[in-house]
Amino acid sequence: MYSVGVIDWDRRLFDELIPLPDGTSYNAYVVGGGEKTALIDAADPPFAEALLDNLEALGLDRIDYMVANHAEQDHSGAIPAILERYPMALVVCTPRCKELLVDHLQIPAEKFLTVEDRSTLSLGGKTLEFLYTPWVHWPETMVTYLKEDEILFPCDFFGSHYATSDLFADPKIIYEPAKRYYAEIMMPFRAVIRKNLEVVDSLEIKMIAPSHGPLHPDPSFIIEAYRDWSSEEVKNEVVIPFVSMHGSTRLMVDHLTGALIARGIGVRRFDIAVSDVGKIAEALVDAATLVLGTCTVLAGPHPNAAHVAFLANALRPKTRFATIIGSYGWGGKTVKAIQEAIPLLKVEVIEPVLAKGLPTAEDYQALDQLADEILRRHRELGIA
């Protein structure tokens, strides 16, 4: 087996949405048997030539199978270039993946070999087994298992956006990038993730070779992390993303932060105007409560706060409780607008605290009562 992927050191935005503070990689792997050779996953289109250079450096004059675990272009976009250079290759994927690759890359239908769940492909002394793992994080995804060597190629599953020259992951370094990656990409599908972890549990695995970030020579590390993140268990933590134009909402956030800490509750706090949304997503993986702090703009929430509400709704964290604090000038429909923006969040909404202008003594008292209520809810869950 050879790692032939490409490191994208300088990429700082993914899908024109997700910040990449550490870059990323598009991993691809060559598996050679006694009779056939397979390439597992490809690369983002701008890196097609770099991938081909890596293949030529191995002296490969033939690729028989191009295994596409996932149709998204950062893994499939170089497939047309691979097929042009190695015209004998067949694209191996699920039937649903074939449909997507035909649509997105216009690969001719006759170039495919579709596989069923748990089917195998012999390379001659090396056997690839294909297992369906839908919705990690597209509907067509599968993982590939090299049976003789007990290596799992899960594409996006267990990955991390982390550019490094180290082939293998250091758990102390990769935990946070992997958790951030899970939060941004996998968290909306955590119920399906749990089912697909059962698929992984059915295999004897010595190594996990994802298609983003370093490889995992200790599979239990990342598998157990996913088991924790995708569970329904929450922690005694409150996430407070906030935006404040003239300081009133910030004063309220300052007070609530101190009140929560005094009650033994962990706080993850983010000034939305300058914070990385990926950090907010990561914090939402475990937190029991979300408190959105927002000032009022034209009778509604600040657009940055509305964006965070939209993001939380899309990511669907296992957060149990949510509320809103903030300041307004003369009125508005901030609470209604935020509540309407989070229909997919299965949360209990705690009574918001809104102040007219600068917070008064009564407003600070209401924030203390809010902290008491959050503590009570957390105690009912047995986490405080």
Score class of each variant (00 low, 15 high):
310 F>L: 06
291 V>H: 01
193 I>C: 12
12 R>C: 10
318 K>E: 07
121 L>V: 12
179 K>G: 00
196 N>R: 06
345 L>S: 01
309 A>Q: 04
142 M>F: 02
360 T>Y: 12
90 L>M: 15
280 I>Q: 06
207 M>F: 05
101 L>K: 03
214 P>L: 09
140 E>S: 13
233 E>H: 02
134 P>G: 01
1 M>N: 01
79 I>S: 02
21 P>G: 07
273 A>S: 14
316 R>T: 11
379 R>V: 07
89 A>M: 09
355 A>I: 11
380 E>V: 10
126 K>D: 03
56 E>A: 13
251 L>Y: 06
215 L>E: 06
56 E>H: 12
265 I>A: 15
362 E>L: 05
51 L>M: 11
271 D>Q: 14
301 P>C: 02
362 E>Q: 07
300 G>K: 13
296 T>L: 02
81 A>V: 02
303 P>I: 10
239 V>D: 15
13 L>F: 03
382 G>I: 12
158 F>E: 09
168 F>T: 06
189 F>M: 05
260 L>H: 12
357 G>A: 00
182 Y>T: 10
159 G>M: 01
11 R>S: 10
122 S>K: 06
315 L>Y: 00
220 S>F: 09
169 A>Y: 06
153 F>H: 10
319 T>H: 05
90 L>H: 14
371 A>R: 08
300 G>T: 05
310 F>I: 03
34 G>N: 08
52 L>P: 09
376 R>N: 15
55 L>A: 00
310 F>N: 01
227 R>D: 08
313 N>Y: 01
87 P>V: 13
355 A>T: 04
310 F>P: 00
291 V>I: 14
333 K>N: 08
17 L>D: 14
226 Y>C: 04
294 T>N: 08
67 V>W: 08
137 H>L: 14
233 E>L: 04
341 A>T: 04
19 P>M: 14
149 D>P: 02
224 E>D: 12
236 N>C: 12
